[in-house]
Design a protein around this nucleic acid. Structure first.
Length: 337
DNA sequence: CGTATTTGACCCTG
DNA sequence: CAGGGTCAAATACG
């Protein structure tokens, strides 16, 4: 199973690093150019940082994959039985927690667009309902808990956690469990609450507002950080199913970031730009538009919402939703060879 | 009025 | 016992 992983990560690393290198060269040219623009430089810097950040994430996830490969195998061979206790159907809550433990088995790291006006991961066509929020130790921002809107009507057990990163203005989304609900246009069967598009749009809209409030600037102290920023074009990996055969997958969507906005906001409240042209695109479409080559600077600058990052790629990363460890073992650098 | 969100309490895990 | 995940009553919203 793991033989192709290294290759995929290696390719990803190469792409990211080459992109970073090329962008750095472009930045250098900009700096030497008499008609350089500060905005261009800022965008380049942000994009370069993005490449490095993704590279580091790939590195880490690769290492974790290697570390936990044996554990994964054991999980695959003996599904269930995650919680030896609470087998008795005493109380409903016990079953809930049994599921909780069983679900934290898989993760996938994906770049997601996040920012003003974006409802968490773009292309997340599912409807989510917030069921909790917790302050996490050591985290500036609370973590929000969502479950599938159709949990009751269709028994879909998919959940996700959304948390903003303290430093990089990034958004981390962890998906747990796989959707078993019928979504989108095919949702007519058996769903009591998702019959028409209009209603689902309402739900999505509310999810948008909720995510924004949670993630950015519902508190005044955050206003200064969230205004005058603009969503960084990003990409995401399609959440294909072929590498996660179980229902207990956990996806970790890590990192998207903002760029300094080119638009000044006069007001003290978050005034978000309109949804991007690819608001209606799913992740895969975004990725497909990328191609495998590095985006040119001209394209980046001419299309603020264009995707500037890596080509789409499926990789079954096993990564915990934790910050990158600076002491991460670098023997994995053999990937670069 | 139905549905979604908020939020404090509860429960499980390490 | 602390921290994290979930529940469920209260509240908000359309």
């Amino acid at each position: 199973m793991g033989t192709g992983i290294g290759c995929e990560h290696k390719n990803l690393m190469n792409i990211e690093l080459k992109q970073g290198q090329e962008l750095a060269n472009q930045l250098k040219e900009q700096l030497c150019s008499p008609k350089r623009s500060k905005e261009t430089c800022e965008i380049l810097v942000a994009t370069i940082l993005s490449s490095f950040e993704k590279s580091l994430s790939i590195l880490k996830s690769s290492a974790l994959k290697l570390q936990d490969d044996s554990m994964l195998n054991s999980l695959h061979s003996s599904p269930g039985d995650a919680s030896p206790r609470s087998e008795m159907p005493d109380e409903p809550r016990k079953n809930v927690f049994k599921k909780r433990k069983a679900m934290t088995q898989w993760s996938e790291q994906v770049q997601v667009p996040f920012g003003p006006g974006i409802e968490g991961p773009v292309g997340d066509e599912y409807s989510w309902r917030k069921y909790g929020q917790k302050n996490i130790l050591g985290a500036t921002f609370p973590r929000a808990y969502y479950r599938c809107t159709y949990r009751n009507s269709q028994g879909c057990l998919a959940t996700k956690q959304v948390q903003r990163s303290d430093e990089s203005l990034s958004l981390q989304v962890i998906y747990k469990g796989r959707h078993t609900c019928k979504k989108g246009s095919e949702s007519s069967a058996g769903s009591a609450s998702c019959g028409n598009q209009e209603k689902r749009h309402k739900i999505q809209k509310q999810n948008v507002e909720n995510t924004i409030n949670f993630g950015t600037c519902d508190k005044t102290e955050e206003l200064g950080r969230c205004i005058q920023v603009e969503r960084m074009p990003s990409f995401s990996f399609p959440s294909t199913n072929h590498f996660c055969p179980e229902d207990t997958r956990e996806y970790s969507f890590i990192d998207s970031r903002y760029l300094p906005s080119l638009v000044n906001q006069e007001t003290s409240e978050c005034s978000y730009p309109s949804l991007s042209p690819y608001h209606n695109m799913n992740n895969f479409e975004i990725g497909q538009n990328l191609g495998s080559s590095v985006s040119s600077l001209a394209e980046i600058l001419s299309t603020p919402n264009s995707v500037t990052n890596s080509p789409v790629c499926n990789f079954d990363l096993l990564i915990d939703p934790v910050d990158f460890d600076p002491n991460f073992p670098l023997d994995i650098l053999e990937f670069f060879s």
